[in-house]
Design a protein around this nucleic acid. Sequence first.
DNA 1: GCCAATATCTACTGACGAGTAGATTGCATA
DNA 2: TATGCAATCTACTCGTCAGTAGATATTGGC
Lengths: 220, 220
Amino acid sequence: MTSPTVATAAYERASPFRSKAERAHDRGQKREAVLRAAVRMFNARGFHATSLDDVAASLHISKPTIYYYLGNKDQVLLECVTRGLGELAEAAERVRETPGTGLERLRAFLFLYAKVNMDDFGRCVVRTGDECLVPKNAERFRMLKRRIDGAMRALIEEGMADGSIAPGDVKLIAFTLAGALNWPARWHDPAGPETPNQIAEKMVGILTAGLAPRPAERPV
Amino acid sequence: MTSPTVATAAYERASPFRSKAERAHDRGQKREAVLRAAVRMFNARGFHATSLDDVAASLHISKPTIYYYLGNKDQVLLECVTRGLGELAEAAERVRETPGTGLERLRAFLFLYAKVNMDDFGRCVVRTGDECLVPKNAERFRMLKRRIDGAMRALIEEGMADGSIAPGDVKLIAFTLAGALNWPARWHDPAGPETPNQIAEKMVGILTAGLAPRPAERPV
DNA sequence: GCCAATATCTACTGACGAGTAGATTGCATA
DNA sequence: TATGCAATCTACTCGTCAGTAGATATTGGC
């Protein structure tokens, strides 16, 4: 954690005296470590059941250090969910450049969406209710979630327009897909046998195809 | 709440003196009211963020009265989720007598499952994590959930066996379906325009058919 | 009219946990 | 080498809340 990782000459790298840039980098690393410890514990025990003393203890530091790096408990949670939602927004961004039909693009998004939800910050988004945050932060949280939902609906509409998705209630379809792909945030065990990739792939397949069997592809 | 509802002669019914049965009935009603108030508040604010003092205040009673009727906070929560899981078990039971293909029977179950999840106790099941309960109760909670999951998987397997459901990973299909149908516990607003019946119906349709359009039914 | 059971309250204890004050240490640069 | 900034700690305050002790009606049965 204290070893410099920015590009420096060898003799500098061995020196115990850190440059300004190195110290800033260190600081960033520590901030990151604190955030990660917090989100893991929030996910494992729930936000209200997690005390900042516990989080601090897991890193062998004291509570004021958390306040030094991240601020109060509410800000910690806000940053966690903002990270998660940022990852989802990035997924939406990446899909914007994906070619293909509406369905193909939606599938690409759903796949990334599912994977984020099996990661620390994504899981936190799913597991956190508005009621955990103070009103001002909760408003921001809702706003960011609405944006993701909007991206998903846009893809669904696109698919309906080009005929690659069957017509239907767009809002309810979005909620159904989101619900199905959020759920792994509750049950997925990173130590389990199946990787997030495999799970995401299969789930997207199930949602695309539906339960009822499809007639075999007919040659044209 | 104090009016007797068991069958009694008219003069008895007007009497301010209640019979043993009537008093027992009253007591049951009160117990029920306390449980309902608790589950509503748990759902609205989360378990940890809800104090029993708040629950008591919402009924214009005092905290010890809750202990008198229901026991400690953990027991209250356990009873809430046990109720919800009881409703789901009842749904599974009812489907056992439903005729039809595996898919038809599964659809019937999913429909009831979705509706329970938009009800007070069902919502509580979804919103409650194992980590909210003391270990002993959490174990019981998990066991009851496993039973519901087992019922769903059995129906899926039945459908695969009779060809009404496309073959696939049974466990993951069950999780996908459960996730999608659990999600309304988070977003559904009973005061909203759509009834639980309508929502449940549409969601089951989406999951059965899948996103991709199906070729029009071909006449044999 | 008295006893026991039922139902409910007020008023407390004890623990836990968020958040802060202020001291301390160590490095960095003038 | 003195000064100031960065990083971290110990030791508190204060509020909240689960859970309890024990008092106080009310009422039914004898």
